[in-house]
Structures are given as structure tokens and as C-alpha cells.
Nucleic acid binder design. Sequence first.
DNA 1: ATGACTCCCAGTGGGAGA
Length: 254
Amino acid sequence: MKLATWNVNSLNVRLPQMLDWLAANPVDVLVLQETKLTDDKFPAAEIEAAGYQVQWFGQKTYNGVALLSRSGASDIVKNLPGLDDPQARVIAATVDGVRCIGAYFPNGQAPDSDKFVYKMAWLEALQRFLAVELQTYEKLVLMGDFNIAPTDADVYDPIAWAGQIHCTPEERGHFQAMLEQGMVDAFRLFEQPPKSWSWWDYRNLAFRKNQGLRIDHILVSQSLKGQVKACVIDKLPRKNERPSDHAPVIVELA
DNA sequence: ATGACTCCCAGTGGGAGA
């Protein structure tokens, strides 16, 4: 079973690229972030024509998530229970006995901003949700755009980024807390190329210079850890014309 | 470097992203 996550930065713009990518990478589950589409404008027919079932939850201009699956998806949850959130950031479903949570974590903008306060509250609500989900579903995958670089090894210039958004001790503490809840960073189960990133700024030729961050992640629950066969970042779509600024991350389960 | 690029909604500019 293969699962993937991709922040497409507007599904309206990236739909053809996403369909091309799925044709070349026929994963069983794909979660999307930053669809930026209201639910009435979601391109469900095109996705279904490609052989996928799809659940979606969006809004205008910002955020928006979706979950595509080859098999049927059940027990759909949209957004975090207990958090009165006007922003569409979470979609969860059970597919082939695996609980899949797709999430677009808040950016946070700057550590001294109101958006950072929101990010912290959102992260606390996510961990409460995760704890409940783990009690119900032993096989669980949490994947998406975390907007957290977990360690300095996930940052192209750790000195410049020290204490900056995505790299603050508070954000990294929340990431560690999820590991302490029993989740495992699938990417780090394997030896990886040095300077592996999942996001590169559009500006300043960052992709060409490989100046990026690893902020898109796939965490698996402890009982799935032994089944993880591979986890890779696919940089190829970042080389497209009009690419998303993020690359997909893929995990393979036995 | 108060920047750079891209997307969106706007409406001939500005916010947000990361």
C-alpha cells in the first residue's frame, strides 16, 4: 500500500499536474493541501475519472484539503473535533483498514504574531485528536504539510533560520510530542540523501540552489512502523513548469 | 535588504504563503 501527501498550492492551477503525477505514481491514498477551492468548485469528476474516490473540504482563497483513495473511504472527519476553526485544514478517513489523517498545519507567519498563537492552539487540538484516534485505530498515518522543520537537519541554513517560523522550539516541541505519542517519522526510518527538502521558496532560485526545508511529513503509528518499506520525497514535480512550491512525499507499507 | 515568486481576489494593488 502506498500513501502520499502533496501541498499543491491551488488545485485549480495544479489539477493537470496532479493527474499526470497520479498516472505515473498510482498510489492508494493521496492527501492534498492548499486546494484553495470552495466545495462547489472541487473537480471531483476529473479525479473520479482517473480511478479515485475523493473526499474534500475547502474554502475560498486559502487552505482546503482532500483525500483521494483507490478503495472506499469510511468514517470521514473534517477538521479537528473540539476546535471551532473557520479554516479548512484536516480531512481523515479509513482506507483498507488504515486510518489516514491529512492535515494542512497553520503557517504561523512569525513567532510574535497572532497567527502563531493560532498555530499553537491548533497543534494542541491536533494532539488531542490524535490521542483519541490512536485509541480507536491502531494503524494510523498522519501526513501533510506540517509547516514544521523538526530538526536542523531539515533546514538548508539552520543558522539563518534559528528561531524563525517553522524552526521555533515551540513548534519543534509539538512535533516531538507527537513522536512521544507513539508516532514515527517514516522518512527518518531510512538513510536519506543529505539536504532532503520538501519545500523550496519560489524566490531567489531556491530550488536550483537546493535551498529548502523539510516541512511535509508522514508519521505512522507504532504498530505500522514494521510495515514501512520506503519513504521518499519526489522532487520531479518541482521541476515542472508552474510547479507547486512543495514536492510530494510517498510512503510504502508492506 | 523593506526584495526576490506565485496565488488569490481584487480591480490597475495588496495579503499570505514559508
